[in-house]
């Protein structure tokens, strides 16, 4: 996958506090990159830096293959919704979108109307934005980020304050845009369950440090239900498992095998291994949820 954003030791320091500490992030074209982290982990600061709203103290990043000053004109290809939707409360949704379209020099006919349709706000008419519900404001924020058809959209906590119906709508909209227009999304959230429904890649940030980057499949593998088998001879155990018609398993270390199917067959596995002279040190069914995985990775404090 071609990377359209790569950060290299990106750091942001406020006096003695490092809000972002040496982050190396890789975002591929067409990905939906979920940035997971608890409040104050450094998500917003990191997103502000890669959207051109804040300058890094140290490090650099490449955008669409360009680095340094060459990235400046490329920021126009990034749409952002950082922290809260930036809106003029005394104006209606159309006017808010039109102002941004004018500022960016977007002359496409019906662009504003299309965006309103896209986020389900075409019925709002002359209603002032300050009278919108939180969910409507959030959707307008997403529409604002989409002005000018950017190649990459950065959304900071876009589902904050939305009801389940609104969350589902936003999720559907983002997935559709990603599939139809190949727009790359970077979405930060602390609501892991929601993020897990749409993200194709994940970055886990904690105390300003990007702890891990992984694909959806990798995370799924780490979090899905499995039999964790510990034996003294993994190669022989693999042969036995194949003979038992197991196909979906993985050797993760010198003595451990993860089996992702037929979770009720632990007894049969143990007997088969024993018959073939393989010593079973441990066999257990594990089911680690995404949240548990995150908590284990970040030190186990439950305030995500």
């Amino acid at each position: 996958m071609e990377h359209i954003l790569v950060t290299n030791s990106l750091t942001k320091k406020y006096r003695h506090h490092k809000a972002v500490d040496g982050v190396n992030m890789h975002v591929g074209r067409g990905a939906i990159y979920g940035l997971i982290g608890r409040n104050g982990a450094g998500k917003t600061t990191l997103l502000k830096m890669i959207s051109g709203l804040a300058g890094p103290t140290d490090g650099e990043f490449s955008l669409f293959g360009q680095t340094g000053k060459k990235t400046t004109p490329l920021f126009s290809r990034i749409g952002t919704l950082i922290e809260s939707p930036g809106i003029f409360g005394n104006m209606d949704a159309t006017e808010n979108l039109r102002l941004k379209a004018i500022a960016l020099g977007v002359r496409k006919k019906n662009h504003v109307e299309e965006l309103l349709e896209l986020v389900g706000l075409s019925h709002t008419g002359n209603k002032r934005v300050k009278n919108f519900s939180l969910g409507m404001k959030q959707r307008l924020g997403i529409a604002l980020a989409m002005v000018g058809e950017p190649d990459m959209v950065i959304l900071d906590e876009p589902i904050n304050g939305l009801d389940p119906h609104g969350i589902a709508e936003i999720r559907e909209t983002l997935c559709r845009l990603n599939a139809e227009k190949q727009i790359t999304f970077i979405i930060s959230s602390h609501i892991l369950e929601e993020l897990s429904k749409i993200a194709t890649h994940y970055g886990i940030i904690h105390n300003g440090v990007l702890l891990q980057e992984l694909t959806r499949k990798e995370l799924h593998d780490k979090c899905s239900e499995r039999i964790e088998l510990t034996v003294d001879d993994t190669s022989k155990a693999c042969t036995i498992l194949e003979a038992m018609d197991f196909r979906h398993f993985k050797v993760v270390s010198n003595d451990t095998i993860h089996i992702f199917e037929r979770l009720d067959d632990t007894g049969e596995i143990a007997v088969a291994l024993s018959c073939q002279g393989v010593k079973t040190i441990g066999i257990v069914v594990k089911n680690e949820a995404l949240e548990d995985y995150f908590l284990n990775l970040t030190g186990g404090e439950r305030n995500v």
């Binding site: 959207s51 990034i78 930036g86 808010n96 960016l104």
Partner: peptide, 10 residues
């Protein structure tokens, strides 16, 4: 209103 964030980066 935070509108500046919509345009400043671009």
């Amino acid at each position: 209103g935070g509108y500046i964030k919509n345009i400043a980066g671009q």
